[in-house]
Design a protein around this nucleic acid. Sequence first.
DNA 1: ATAATGGATATTGGATCCAAATTTGTTCCG
DNA 2: CGGAACAAATTTGGATCCAATATCCATTAT
Lengths: 231, 231
Amino acid sequence: MAESSKLVRSTTAVDVARILRDRILSGHYAEDQYIRQEMIAQELGVSRIPVREALAQLEAEGLVIREKYRGALIPKLSLSEIEEIYEMRGMIEPYLLRTAFSNITPEVIASLREVVDKSRVTDDMGEWAGLNMQFHYTLYGLAGRPLSLQILENLLVRADRYLKVQRFLSNETQKESDAEHQRILDLIEEGDEDGAIEALREHISWNAQDLRRTIGFNDAAPADKADKAKG
Amino acid sequence: MAESSKLVRSTTAVDVARILRDRILSGHYAEDQYIRQEMIAQELGVSRIPVREALAQLEAEGLVIREKYRGALIPKLSLSEIEEIYEMRGMIEPYLLRTAFSNITPEVIASLREVVDKSRVTDDMGEWAGLNMQFHYTLYGLAGRPLSLQILENLLVRADRYLKVQRFLSNETQKESDAEHQRILDLIEEGDEDGAIEALREHISWNAQDLRRTIGFNDAAPADKADKAKG
DNA sequence: ATAATGGATATTGGATCCAAATTTGTTCCG
DNA sequence: CGGAACAAATTTGGATCCAATATCCATTAT
């Protein structure tokens, strides 16, 4: 973490990766469409080399699939993948909370209360999502399990694609989520470890159901590749 | 359509990554030593481009750390990392076994028995390790959870670095592990799902303890680079 | 007319070349 | 004799160029 004070510019490959990641997560590219390296390179004013490296990075994150000599394309959303993501979250997040529990100080709780309070009053969907992340990461960071946290981050990134499908969460969903955070926080403050973990499990399970209900597409439906009306 | 039958060569970047991965896992490079792109490129008779891409891939797997304009080096072994890996395994593997359970047919059990039998009689450490992998993957593949399986594979790759430190597992350790596989298999055959999962948990926990005992290095101890008695 | 075949075009993977930054070595000054 | 400043040499990141392969399209044979 000491490096963060060094103010080093990241490489352009990393910058390109971030830009492409944002685009993919916001649904900028169609699922059956190849991302052309030259096109990205010209758009961003760089050569194809950092674009290639960025695509390799995104492939490792599961956001694109690269086929040799054919290109990179966005993997199709699949109901089974999102189910799996939430199953994994249901394991990892409780594990991180349990591990973090003894490291949660009153100061942390106070700062989490601030986050939840801000979260409850904001109207900006982007800010809300950020606060949502902050709540979870503040907790999980205390577990001292960097590998698990990294895996979880990747799961959340993958899940983001599905969340962004709806463009925004309903106000009701946000309120419900805030209330659950509040409840988890209360239980933590009471020192009720098992209760807090159980509440977290329910929170994740509720998120999964909400997403399932909102999206509700059919995974098994064979995508007819016939109608690939290419431009 | 039928891409799998096309016998396409992989890219050289992937080849280089595989070679470097094998080298790293077999302890070929020292922890505090930078891997020079040009050196690898000359050794393998390729340019630096695929080497760079391979290093990026390995970084995503956690096998190297790349520092801008400085190079790639092997991250230090850390007791806390291996603890975390086994904690994760203790969650994911039981989850995969439980999910796979209803898909385990008598044919699968028969093939697993073959694997365990071969595993018991072999003297070759490499073959034993391969059979060990085969046993687990055969089971976990039936779960139909590709993302979890991929994450588990990465965890096992990371763990491999620690296992290879000792060059080989003791014969006693192998016998014990084989016996545990046998036991898990028996419980599966009896249809005792909970029992099999519990046995698997114990198996993983036992592996962790064995590794901890065998390696037993101190995580916080600053590695004196002096005693790097390399072969 | 339609399907197969061969060539033109587009696109990616890899090699070579150049720029940016870090490290090393040397010199000068205290 | 030691340390700081500066220069030379490694080394990596990025751009440009070439090769390998896939896709598209026209031509031809049945």
